[in-house]
């Protein structure tokens, strides 16, 4: 039990923070109920996928600056493919866009492995490229999404055997998020591949000497990141009904949530649960600010400031953990 608490202490603390924020929200707005929770889950969806994409790469010891641009590209691709097409066509669009994310993500990894240029530069370059490609697909927000896809994130999930009042707290968006993330994450974590991802993030040389194919694992990590980003792009299209070629603020948000979620920016540590809870915390802070009737633009400033402070704090912890005078 103590061991569990020590290992999961950070996540448990975050969870407590989240519960505390819910209480605060109820105090500000006594009417905050299941419907609002549903819209929170919908708002969290793209952020959560962006964070999952960032988390897996950060655990592997890298960073992916192209997350937001990848989401923009996959979002506009899905929106323009579904524009004017039949409902059934979307059954083809979804796997196509996900495969596109997987391949483009793998391309990031391959470029890093082949050119030996540091990940931060490669993903900066692919950030430009993906942004450009998104503008080529759609030069202004537009497109459409299939109705059944839109319906898949609205409303609640009827669960047999659960009382109606409890069922109201299970929005479809949340179910979708949990299913998509954990169907990939849990098998991965317990597999050899997942272990290898942690290994290259924690000590690349040691991993290499223990027979981990470092380059290949890194490519897989970036490919999975691309896949999650594609989920994020799809969820953007689904929840807004259109695709926008200009990337949202998902890059900074994903890095902030990764840091807040207890994943060390050096790699090799942390899990997916912490960052996901961190996303809920960050979104709920925004909800509270809105409920307090603060100007949305001021909210953007406060949110940006919180994210910068979180990242600063995370970086500060890293220096404290190092011997004095060491380079980061």
């Amino acid at each position: 039990m103590m061991r569990f608490l020590r290992r999961q202490g950070w996540v448990a603390g975050l969870l407590a923070l989240l519960v505390f924020l819910f209480v605060v929200t109820r105090l500000i707005q006594p009417g905050y109920g299941s419907g609002d929770f549903g819209s929170l889950a919908r708002a969290v969806l793209p952020y959560a996928f962006a964070v999952a994409a960032q988390t897996i790469v950060v655990i592997a010891g890298g960073i992916d600056l192209s997350v937001a641009a990848m989401m923009a590209l996959t979002s506009v691709t899905a929106a323009s493919m579904m524009n004017g097409a039949s409902e059934e066509y979307a059954f083809f669009v979804v796997p196509f866009v996900l495969a596109m994310g997987l391949v483009l993500g793998a391309l990031n990894g391959i470029l890093i492995a082949v050119t030996r240029v540091p990940d931060i530069v490669v993903t900066l370059a692919t950030l430009f490229v993906l942004q450009g490609a998104a503008l080529l697909v759609l030069d202004a927000p537009g497109g459409a999404a299939a109705e059944w896809l839109k319906a898949s994130v609205v409303g609640t999930m009827p669960i047999p055997g659960l009382a109606d009042w409890a069922d109201a707290w299970v929005p479809k968006a949340l179910v979708l998020l949990v299913v998509c993330l954990f169907v990939i994450w849990i098998p991965l974590r317990s597999s050899r591949l997942g272990l290898s991802i942690y290994a290259i993030g924690s000590d690349e040389l040691a991993a290499f000497r223990s027979g981990v194919p470092v380059a290949r694992i890194r490519i897989v990590a970036y490919a999975l990141s691309g896949l999650f980003a594609a989920f994020g792009g799809l969820s953007l299209t689904i929840s807004t009904g259109i695709g926008a070629p200009i990337p949202g603020p998902y890059l900074l948000a994903s890095v902030a949530a990764v840091v807040l979620g207890g994943v060390a920016l050096g790699g090799g540590k942390g899990g997916l649960l912490g960052p996901i809870i961190a996303v809920f915390v960050l979104r709920l802070v925004r909800t509270d600010l809105t409920l307090l009737a603060i100007d949305p633009n001021v909210t953007a400033i406060i949110e940006g400031a919180i994210m910068v402070v979180v990242v600063m704090f995370g970086a500060f912890i890293i220096i404290r953990g190092r011997p004095a005078g060491a380079t980061p």
């Binding site: 430009f128 490229v129 942004q131 450009g132 030069d139």
Partner: peptide
């Protein structure tokens, strides 16, 4: 060349030159 193509080109230039 549209704006998107220009950005793609700039991205490749940065990557290629750094490599």
């Amino acid at each position: 060349m549209p704006e998107g193509g220009r950005r793609i080109l700039f991205g490749f230039i940065v990557l290629f030159v750094t490599a």
